[in-house]
Amino acid sequence: MSTFAEIGEGLERAWDSIADGWRQLRQRATHALTRFKPLNSGGKLETAEEVFLQRSSPWGLLAADVSEGDTEVDVRLEAPGLEADNLDIQVVGNVLVVRGEKKVQHAQTEGRFYVMECAYGSFERAVPLPVEVDENAAKASYRRGVLHIKLPKKAATRGRRIEVQY
């Protein structure tokens, strides 16, 4: 085999491994990677909080786990530092939509920043659900920065055991 063919094959293999890594990254992160918007964008920056919001990271990772039990769908969403009262949770079709805002305290904007990685501002995260759920019977709790939402399945989508008659 000529050297050129070997190089070509090596490149092809390298490309395949990059493409595979990229596919995995996309699967894992595309949904969790969430845009955080400062509330007052485009306007003049007046307060220290507004300046802070513009400088802070515009992307945050809100990772979600969805598990399906016999009667309900369980969603856990990592959303640190929020006020649970201000969360807006909705079910639109087969998608769970969580809207919220990570607020900045004035004391947090003081001093000189060396590292700014945390995201602040308002966000919207959509989580696809595996089955239809009854949003009126949903329950949510917030603990240690994780939002836990329990969504009962709609009666029609619950598995039904059909008796075979003789």
């Binding site: 945050g60 990592e78 640190p80 947090q108 590292v115 990685e117 945390c118 995201a119």
Partner: peptide
């Protein structure tokens, strides 16, 4: 975890996002 590190006049303050971790 993502962190913010800042320096104030008399102290350094670090914030780290660690959702779902028991203190």
């Amino acid at each position: 975890p993502a962190v913010d590190i800042r320096e104030e006049a008399d102290r350094y303050v670090i914030h780290a996002d660690v959702p779902g971790v028991d203190p």
